[in-house]
Amino acid sequence: MAHAHDSSSVSPIARAFVEARKRGRALPDYPGNEPTSLAAAYAIQDDAVALWPDLIAGWKLGRVPPPWDVRFGAGRLAGPIFEHQVQTTTEAVFPVIDGGFAAVEAEYVLVLGEDAPNRAGWTSATVADLVSDVRIGMEIAGSPFPGINDHGPAVTASDFGNNQGLILGPSVPDWRGRLERLTCRMEIDGAEAGRGGAMSVPGGPLDSLAFLLNLLHARGRVLEAGQLISTGAATGVHRIFAGQDCRADFGPDGSLSARAVAWGADG
């Protein structure tokens, strides 16, 4: 859904983040006054989406931990995933900004089978029929601002929800019957960094989709057939640096490997 913007009213914070991301340059400090509500953060995010030269392929969800969840009135936050940052390979390479933030997360990715009706009141029970497929995935979290996760959810949400891409793996067979039992683990440079599963995501992956649909409805956006929903970190958020390798192992459902490289080194 396109949003018209008068360029003079575009958030300078959004402009600073977009320029830093385009150039692969770190922002040592937050580029302006930190937003104090999620509504203000999503307004900055919307401005940045309008400035970013790519289409939205889907959305990532991240957990808002205590005590932030009570203070900000939400247990999750969302950010866009852009088409050119989705990789469908089991041996991926991704750039990290020197001096910024980068992390990898094992995720279960829902594929929307139809355009979602534009309404509120979604629950994990009512969203299930919208999902046509579940894929294994790895979210590449990243931001030019190294403190992206240290200042609360509004700061995180304001910079694309700390998303830098998605590695999309194969489908999970018979996911409807197996979702609550799916497990995975993450390795960095061969050492286990975390383990978990689909139910490590609070309420489960379908609850993430319900949250997203309600949020997008409130923001005047829609979710369309074919879009991807990266439902949240199943093993934790694992920092990664240029030169490191990572592997998300989903057991019988496959694994995804990736290497972090210095920004600009991947061509």
Rank of each mutant, 00 (worst) to 15 (best):
H3T: 15
S7W: 04
P12D: 07
I13F: 05
A14W: 13
V18H: 12
V18P: 00
A20I: 01
R21I: 07
R21T: 13
R21D: 01
K22N: 08
K22L: 15
K22D: 09
K22T: 08
A26I: 13
P28C: 13
P35C: 12
T36P: 00
S37M: 05
A39R: 14
A40K: 09
D47H: 13
D47E: 05
A50I: 03
D54L: 01
G58H: 08
G58R: 09
L61K: 04
P66Q: 11
D69Q: 08
V70L: 09
G73C: 02
R76S: 08
F82D: 12
T90K: 07
T90M: 06
V93R: 14
D98A: 15
A106W: 03
V111P: 00
L112A: 08
A116T: 12
G121D: 05
T126Y: 01
V127P: 10
V131P: 03
V134I: 10
V134T: 00
E139T: 01
E139C: 04
I140C: 05
A141N: 07
F145E: 14
P146C: 09
I148A: 11
V155F: 07
L166I: 00
I167A: 02
G169Y: 03
R176K: 15
R178S: 14
L182I: 06
C184A: 15
D189F: 06
A191D: 04
G196V: 08
G197E: 06
V201K: 02
V201Y: 05
V201H: 06
G204V: 05
D207K: 12
S208Y: 05
L209W: 04
L212V: 05
L212Q: 07
L213N: 08
N214F: 04
R219M: 15
Q227P: 12
L228P: 01
I229F: 01
S230E: 01
G236V: 11
H238G: 07
I240M: 03
G254I: 06
W263I: 05
A265G: 01
G267N: 11
G267P: 00
